[in-house]
């Protein structure tokens, strides 16, 4: 475990107005804090209680919420592949109205900043959803006027990259002009951190990143999953109910690193890098390519507290190499 000296390493980092105690957050849709905590038990000393009191992530990113409720895709939804997995979940959620009423209050009570995640099927969808979210945040935080403004602890990730829905979303993120149009529409409605999540399923991710930055994005997160497919050995038909799925896990790490590297070379705004990070060396790789925050995705499926271990190991790494976060972030470009 970490030595005392390593505990003094400064891991803090910023994402626009939000300060993070360390650079590890969860990837949207891969970690449902309340569900995991209930699964693990909420008794005294039980693992679920600890997760809620001391979440392993520096910020919590809930699953994508859409304007209308969604059932999600038909099963089977997941399949393990070599060094990773395919998923075709399809953004099941209860819709924004239920979200702001039932989810948001308890999310605001967590001892971590939030990065909410919104998806849509048209620019108008995003506009209406974000407006409702902002109104709810204004209302639900107004009882504490002396506290810091909610923009210092609540950001917004725009999912423009889900590969498992059949319209909107990824088609917006695949096009620089559409992405820019979405950001221009949402920017005036959202005073806090605004961060589109980019798809790697494009020819030139840097051009989408530049368009988002020019249209007002405060940060970028990348990458969502790579579109993939698997065949069932018995039926010889696609294995997943949604036919295609999104590939994640260590299998995509070199592809994701390339995306982060290319985007970091062309934009000034901070980057949340993700795609198969499982061990501390993966985290360092994303930082070196230019990410200042790294999201952990399906590695959490093995161990819900993966980020707790990785943040400790990152401190150990920096200590053992006598490096600071600043030395590592973007090192591959120098």
């Amino acid at each position: 475990m970490s030595g005392r000296a390593a505990q003094n390493i400064d891991l803090t980092t910023r994402l626009g107005p939000i300060e993070l105690r360390h650079p590890l957050i969860n990837a949207s849709g891969t970690f449902d804090l309340f569900e995991v905590a209930e699964s693990l038990g909420l008794g005294e000393g039980e693992a679920g209680t600890r997760l809620l009191l001391d979440p392993p992530f520096a910020a919590y990113v809930p699953k994508t919420v859409t304007l209308a409720p969604r059932r999600g895709n038909e099963p089977p939804r997941i399949l393990e592949t070599e060094a990773g997995m395919l998923n075709s979940i399809g953004l099941p959620n209860n819709g924004i109205d239920v979200f702001v009423e039932r989810e948001l209050p308890r999310l605001l009570g967590l001892p971590r900043p939030l990065i909410l995640n919104v998806g849509g099927f048209s620019i108008q969808d995003y506009v209406v959803t974000v407006e409702r979210l902002r109104r709810a945040l204004d209302e639900q935080t107004s009882s504490r006027p002396t506290a810091a403004p909610w923009t210092e602890r609540v950001g917004l990730e725009l999912n423009v990259s889900c590969p498992n829905v059949h319209s909107g979303c990824m088609s917006i993120g695949a096009d620089p002009d559409e992405t820019a149009a979405l950001l221009r529409a949402v920017r005036p409605l959202w005073p806090g951190l605004l961060m589109p999540k980019l798809t790697p399923n494009v020819t030139d991710i840097a051009s989408v990143a530049r368009a988002a930055e020019a249209a007002g994005a405060d940060a970028l997160s990348l990458v969502n999953t790579f579109k993939g497919l698997a065949i069932d050995r018995v039926s010889l038909r696609p294995s997943l109910g949604g036919v295609t799925g999104g590939l994640s896990g260590p299998a995509i790490k070199p592809l994701a690193l390339r995306c982060v590297y290319e985007v970091a070379a062309t934009v000034e705004i901070p980057i949340v890098g993700m795609g198969g990070a499982t061990e501390v060396q993966d985290v360092v790789d994303f930082l070196a390519c230019g990410a200042s925050v790294v999201a952990i995705g399906c590695a959490t499926f093995r161990d819900p507290a993966t980020a707790r271990r990785l943040s400790g190991e990152l401190a150990d790494f920096l200590h053992s190499r006598s490096l600071s976060m600043g030395d590592v972030v973007g090192a591959a470009h120098r």
Binding site: D32, E35, S39, L40, P75, R77, I89, C298, T300, F301
Partner: peptide
């Protein structure tokens, strides 16, 4: 039974009708 990824309610992968 269903194929699971996380087993703890996160991934929504193991749904059955």
């Amino acid at each position: 039974e269903a194929g699971m990824a996380c087993g703890v309610g996160s991934c929504q992968g193991c749904v059955i009708p």
